[in-house]
Amino acid sequence: MKKTLTINLGGTVYNIDEDAYLLLDNYLNNLRYHFRKNPEGEEIVRDMEIRIAELFNECLSGGGQVVTMENVEAVISRMGKPEDLNDGEEEAAAEASDPERKKDVKRRLFRNPDDRVLGGVASGIAAYFGWDVLALRLLFVVLGIFFHWLLLAYLIAWIVIPLARTATEKLQMRGEPVNMENIGRTVTGGFDGKDSAEAPKMVWHKIGDVIVKIIGFILKLCLILLAICCFPILFVALIVAFALLLSAVGILVSVPSLFYEFSPVIDWNMVGAFPVTSGVMAVCCLLAVGIPIAGLVQVLMQVFGNWKPMSTVAKLILILVWLVAIIVGVIVFFDSPFMGSVML
C-alpha cells in the first residue's frame, strides 16, 4: 500500500505515488536551479512540465491510474538530467558554477534513523565528521564507563539533535550534494544498500524515542514557564531598548543642543560653519547606538518570534560598520573644532 498525492502538472491533474512525487518535485527543483541564471528559466521549466504531463498521459493510457516511481524515472531519463541540458552558450557558465555548487554542500548534524543502536546519535555524529561509526560507538561505551556525565550528554544529544526524516536531510547528514540523482538513490532505497522502510524498527527504539520526546516536552515546558516568568523583565528591557532608540533619534535631531549641554562654552555658530563635520558625527552616533539595539531586537525575535538567524556575513558587516562608526566618530570629534571648544 502506498500513499498517493494529487498534483496539477501543466494544467492536468494526476494521482502520483508519494515517493514518485518526491522524485519529480526534486527533479523540477533541480531544473529550476539549473536554469536560475537564465532569465527565461521559469518559462523553460514550465514548458518542460507540460511535456512531462504529456509523457505521463502516454504512460497512463495503458490503463494505469497512478503515476508510479518507474514512470517518473522513465520520464526523467527521457527528458535528461539538468547537467545534460546545456545549451551551447551556457556551457562555460555552467562549468564555472559547478565548483560553486560543490561548495554549496553543507553538512548538517542529524540523528541517523537507518543505522541506530539507541537514538542514532553516534552514527549521525560519525556521518557529520566522516568517522567510523563502530569506532565511535566503542569509544563512547568505553568512555561512558569512566565518565558518567557522557550518558547525560548522550541523552541531551538525543533530545536536541533532530532525526533525519526526509531524503534531503539524509543527504545533508552525509554531506552529499542534494541533487536529483542522490535523492533518487535515497528515495528508491539504493543508498548504502539499505532501505529505511524495510529495516525493522526495534521496540526499544520506539520506547526510547517516546521517552526522549516526553523528556524533551517537559524541558520545553520548563523553558516556556521560565520565559513567562521572565517576561516582565524582558518587557522592561524592551521598553528600555525602545527608549534608547528614541533617544538615539533625539540625539540625532538635537546634536547641537546636546553639545550645548555638555559644554555651554561651545560657540554654536560652529555647527553652522561645519555642517559636514556635525552631520558625520550625528550619523556615527546613530550607528553606534542603533546597531547594538537592532542586534538585541533581532536576538529577541529569534528566540521568541521564530525569526531566522542572521547570516555570518551580515553579522560581520554590522560589527564592522559599528566599529568604523565609533572610530570615525571619535576621530572626527577629536579632529573637529568642537574639541577645541570643549577644551576651552
Binding site: E40, E43, S77, R78, M79, K81, D84, L85, D87, E90
Partner: peptide, 10 residues
C-alpha cells in the same frame, strides 16, 4: 534527451 530542446527554443 528531450530536455535539450527547451532552452534552445527559448
Amino acid at each position: 534527451v528531450e530536455g535539450t530542446l527547451y532552452p534552445l527554443l527559448t
